[in-house]
Design a protein around this nucleic acid. Sequence first.
DNA 1: TGCCACATGTAAGATGTTACATGATTCT
DNA 2: AGAATCATGTAACATCTTACATGTGGCA
Lengths: 190, 190
Amino acid sequence: MSKDNTSFYAVLGILDAGAGSGYDIKKAIEYEIGFYYKISNGQIYPTLGILASKGYATVDIEKNEGKPDRKVYSITETGREIFREWLLRPVNYHNPGGNELLLKLHFGASAGAEHNMTLLADHMGIKKRELGRFNEIASYLNIKTAVTQQEIYSYIALLYGQTLAEANIAWCGEAMKILKAMEGKAGSND
Amino acid sequence: MSKDNTSFYAVLGILDAGAGSGYDIKKAIEYEIGFYYKISNGQIYPTLGILASKGYATVDIEKNEGKPDRKVYSITETGREIFREWLLRPVNYHNPGGNELLLKLHFGASAGAEHNMTLLADHMGIKKRELGRFNEIASYLNIKTAVTQQEIYSYIALLYGQTLAEANIAWCGEAMKILKAMEGKAGSND
DNA sequence: TGCCACATGTAAGATGTTACATGATTCT
DNA sequence: AGAATCATGTAACATCTTACATGTGGCA
């Protein structure tokens, strides 16, 4: 329902790759995408409830001795559609939480290289424009002309922006190269 | 009261630099640190109320014709202490929101270069450890041995982590150089 | 003996966004 | 005529974290 509920789609994406319980999903997220995306029980379990109530997932209960029964969730066709819709939407850069681009790339493996190339090209464009703005500011906020300490700290912040934007641009280039190579391989010998 | 309420300290930090109304504060944040930190009215105005109720700020009302009266807030001594306490606390890297390090560097201008050097050294250490972990993963998740598409996408995510960690490390180095140079200048001719 | 893995979940609160209400004045 | 600037604020909601409750079985 909501536009940008990242955790909603993260859970749905994990289910898209295979059925599992809340516990399984937590482990999968930690293991697969844990380094750029975190999730807590307080999000997973309510999300699974919503998923089931909307018909995006079905539940199977597995009896478990001594432990609570495992509630194993499977994605439905509707769920898949909803998930694909999200995958194909452009990345929301206002979303302050986790790295939506990496999340979409991760889940987009099966969605084909083309779409991911677009996501990367978009990202590169955004970072290039960002870098352009920083460079413009740098032309008058120069370290050589900086006098006050405040100016120096502002310059350091600017440098951060420039450095990170450049790193993003470089990464996009590399990633696109890799995807291009992969497409070539897939086309020629698979 | 809360541990990591970034917006609370951002507002307090702006007030530390000079008294102002909610409107002024919003403008100041947009202008000074807008590129890495955002704030909305829904945060500013309640925060100012809390600040006043806790005795961290006092209010002066300026009559304004045709417009609502300006409520000009000034930081108190207690407010300053609370703010300094935050400044000297290490950066909370679990905080998902805005870039706390840049915020502290920005406000830390008056707190002296030494503390900021420590913040940068800490940051560098964290990013170096992060990079070490990524490199370790890279040793077995290698692009040459990647077979499945999923492996390739995981590799791209890893590359992102590496590239950004390296950029952070490089930036820290530059920033520390700048601060060192500044200290030298301050010592020799000011 | 105590902690970790398994497995479910909830309650409370922190933090933030979006969109609205109000209304005069000044610029385009 | 309409948009922007000035200036206050609130209400609803979205999102997420922290900490707890509950309990077994296995390993050190």
